[in-house]
């Protein structure tokens, strides 16, 4: 059971970390507002649920799907505009980017508080995700969590296909590996930046949408996840997406096991200590790539 709780934390962490890692790998930009984008995805899903409840009650059972898709669309459009309007002016100044995105995150939190709700909001669980799957006597898995795990796996697979099987993926990988040379080979690096930033933000949106099925969403929901997401990215090694996924898995598992045995903050401190220990021996992360440069 603990393993399964860990699994659903893992799915959120993984989706968040994938987005953050792709953007960081490509542009060296640490997006401090990534957590608030997750919250934006959650609020979008909440909005969709409200809309269906009010106008399309007969179709309530599919709001979840619409919510996921719309969460992705809304957050990626927001990400695109954020990149065009702000981030791209700060590429050569990582500290300024850090501050600017931190500012954005505070503004977004305030916007959520002011215009949505200062308390936490909840979405209804649709009928087909209620109930649980009885695996064996005594072990039951809630359907909603199974769904989230499936969604995360499907999303990770799509991201993999995008990165490794499409022309856009090739562009992203080329720019990540050598920005100047990618430009000199003919790739429009600015377009790649916008596209990738939007993609990363969209993944945070999907994470947020999944999150609504686990817990209620508040203005500071993103804050609770951003630190863990950073840890996942650093632990996995920023160059390796597979590393990011495995690292999200390990950290998600540790989180739920540790919390089972000790208090929440103690659990976090222990995880951090373990991660620092690992990074001491493998400074480039657990899964740093091994190819001659």
């Amino acid at each position: 059971m603990q393993a399964f709780t860990g699994l659903s934390i893992f799915t959120i962490l993984m989706l968040m970390a994938l987005g953050l890692a792709i953007v960081f790998g490509l542009m060296g930009v640490i997006n401090m507002a990534h957590g608030e984008l997750m919250a934006m995805g959650a609020y979008t899903t909440f909005g969709v649920a409200q809309f269906f409840k009010a106008f399309l009650p007969g179709l309530m059972s599919i709001y979840v799907i619409v919510g996921i898709v719309l969460a992705f669309i809304v957050t990626s459009i927001f990400g695109f505009l954020l990149e065009r309007g702000l981030i791209r002016f700060l590429y050569k100044r990582p500290l300024d980017t850090l501050l600017a995105t931190w500012g954005i995150s505070l503004i977004l939190q305030q916007v959520y508080r002011q215009f949505i709700d200062s308390r936490e909001v909840e979405v209804p669980t649709v009928s087909w995700l209620q109930g649980a799957w009885q695996m064996t006597e005594g072990v039951t898995l809630p359907l909603s969590r199974l769904f989230i795990v499936g969604l995360a796996i499907a999303t990770a697979f799509l991201v993999y296909m995008l990165l490794f099987r499409t022309r856009w993926g090739l562009r992203i990988r080329a720019v990540t590996q050598n920005r100047a040379m990618a430009g000199a080979a003919g790739i429009d690096t600015r377009r790649v930046d916008s596209f990738t930033f939007a993609l990363g933000c969209g993944l945070a949106g999907i994470a947020g949408s999944s999150f609504t099925m686990l817990a209620s969403t508040g203005p500071t929901t993103g804050q609770q996840y951003i630190v863990d997401t950073f840890i996942v990215v650093v632990f996995g090694g920023v160059e390796s997406l597979l590393g990011t996924i495995l690292s999200a898995f390990i950290i998600g598992q540790m989180q739920s096991w540790f919390e089972y045995g000790m208090s929440g903050s103690m659990a976090r401190a222990s995880i951090l200590a373990l991660v620092i220990l690992v990074l001491y021996f493998r400074p480039n992360g657990l899964f740093a790539a091994k190819v001659r440069r």
């Binding site: 090739l170 990988r173 080329a174 590996q177 040379m181 000199a184 080979a185 003919g186």
Partner: peptide, 18 residues
Amino acid sequence: MIFPFLTVEENILTGMEH
């Protein structure tokens, strides 16, 4: 300045944007 983690084929494809 070869892209180290791209295959030979992919390296050539990066030149085929235009």
